[in-house]
Design a protein around this nucleic acid. Structure first.
Lengths: 133, 133
DNA sequence: GCCATATGCGGGTATATACCCGCTCCTATG
DNA sequence: CATAGGAGCGGGTATATACCCGCATATGGC
């Protein structure tokens, strides 16, 4: 057997864990990707698409489309800042509520994954390897 | 700082490595996901969508759509087996050629990733952690 | 103050991915 | 041998993601 493809293995792992988190978050009607965005917007209070894309390490147009979904869901609203080009995102009241409610579910998923990895040390090790990529 | 989300980190790592492999494979007009499918079809000689989905750990409908792209590209052809429901995939002559040509590029990407991970040991370690997920 | 350039976004297009529904075809049970 | 249940697929719909192009706005050099 030759060495497996690191990329394919990573993609599979990402899909698998995403399914676990998505299932945990399903009762709140959001996915792990959406949860992550809500969290980042919440932390920033107000953030532009470009900035959010930057801290998320995602393409700006991707963020734009994902944000549009959150807006349609009523979890996020877009306000304009001084720079008329900018669309600043912030959580709606419902967005704050949904985020707060889903945090425990996310924590449970985190614990589950950590458990699979043999505890905090194994998890830390995985993260460190991922970061060296 | 609280613990980062394992899922988000995995997704980011998968995106990042995918970009590296995609770039390496771009001269041959295929993505890493397509390369992986071509490789699996090649190994099996002939394989059904359901079976391919099974070994790929992907949804059958996903495989069906991805295979359709490969067919449109002329890299794969679908033949029907004894069971009339089955659509057996096999590489076309061009598919074999493209796969053969892109193998070195893929190997180069593998080496690059392995390098990031501090050599074969680090890479093996990452794979082992991913597999325990 | 004006224009060249840079910045911020939206939209088009394409792949990757999943879930669900419905159709077709196969197979085992009575 | 007929039919019920199961297996294999396609297609609808939706999110996630990236790249490129074009439009609007800001800004800096003159």
């Amino acid at each position: 057997m030759s060495t497996p493809c690191y990329c394919i293995e990573l993609r599979a792992a990402a899909r698998k864990t995403s399914a676990i988190y998505d299932e945990a978050l399903a009762p709140f009607g959001i996915t792990i990707a959406q949860y992550s965005l809500l969290r980042k917007i919440d932390r920033a209070k107000r953030i532009s698409l470009t900035e959010l894309a930057s801290i998320s390490d995602l393409d700006r147009s991707t963020i734009g489309r994902n944000a549009k979904v959150l807006e349609r869901m009523g979890l996020v609203q877009s306000v304009s800042g001084k720079d008329q080009r900018e669309a600043l995102l912030e959580l709606s009241t419902m967005g704050q509520k949904v985020l707060a409610e889903s945090i425990p579910a996310h924590a449970a998923a985190q614990a589950k994954i950590e458990d699979h990895l043999g505890g905090p040390d194994g998890a830390k090790d995985l993260l460190s390897r991922l970061h060296s990529l």
